[in-house]
Amino acid sequence: MTTKLILTHDVTNLGSAGEVVEVKDGYARNYLVPRKLATPWTKGAQRQLDQMAEARRRRSIESLEQAQAARAWLGDNVVTVTATAGANGRLFGAVTTADLAAAVKDAEGPVVDRRSIEVNPPIKSVGRHSASVRLHPDVVATIEVNVVAAR
């Protein structure tokens, strides 16, 4: 059995926010809906979705230019994150996407939504790492992250 859903956030390997997708019942019931990544499809929700898509289309050209400018800034700069680490350089926990978004903001960079950042594999040690950010459907940037131990 499949369930028809409207994605409220971008989901890797499934679709982007605002798309209507059909997924298996268990995936919808146990993962997408509880995490508020999707809502059930209805006719009223479809009308609202169409209105949002039209508004997004009107804004898309300027946001593409902004996304390219943000990608240029992220490519030119290295973001520094301070985290608590042990003597061997392993972090107590991991660097989260919220930490990365805050670090970009603190470095006076572009506003980056934490939900658009993907860190793969998780950052769990001191040193240089990279993460990707989906700024626009057509623009993906790479963030260079320097993790330093807190003193």
Rank of each mutant, 00 (worst) to 15 (best):
101 A>G: 02
20 V>A: 10
122 P>Y: 01
78 V>P: 01
27 Y>W: 09
100 L>I: 12
11 V>C: 07
135 L>I: 01
14 L>E: 07
103 A>W: 04
116 S>C: 02
133 V>H: 03
77 N>L: 06
132 S>F: 03
43 K>R: 14
139 V>K: 13
100 L>K: 08
99 D>V: 06
57 R>S: 15
17 A>W: 01
104 V>W: 06
118 E>I: 14
22 E>H: 14
31 Y>S: 14
116 S>T: 13
3 T>M: 11
2 T>P: 01
26 G>R: 15
107 A>N: 04
61 I>L: 13
130 S>L: 00
103 A>I: 00
69 A>T: 13
5 L>R: 13
17 A>E: 03
16 S>F: 00
147 V>L: 07
117 I>N: 09
20 V>M: 02
109 G>A: 02
64 L>P: 13
66 Q>Y: 05
1 M>T: 13
42 T>P: 01
134 R>K: 12
129 H>Q: 05
63 S>T: 13
143 I>G: 06
113 D>A: 08
142 T>L: 09
2 T>A: 03
96 T>R: 10
99 D>E: 04
132 S>H: 10
11 V>D: 10
120 N>W: 01
49 L>T: 03
72 A>L: 14
1 M>A: 12
127 G>A: 10
31 Y>M: 12
42 T>E: 02
73 W>E: 09
27 Y>R: 14
63 S>C: 01
27 Y>T: 13
2 T>Y: 00
84 T>M: 08
54 E>P: 04
40 P>F: 01
141 A>I: 08
140 V>H: 09
41 W>G: 14
144 E>G: 06
113 D>F: 00
56 R>S: 12
95 V>H: 08
77 N>F: 06
103 A>F: 07
144 E>K: 14
92 F>I: 06
34 P>V: 05
132 S>V: 03
142 T>D: 07
62 E>F: 12
133 V>A: 08
137 P>K: 02
76 D>T: 15
11 V>H: 07
96 T>W: 02
124 K>R: 06
65 E>K: 15
100 L>R: 11
146 N>M: 12
8 T>Q: 06
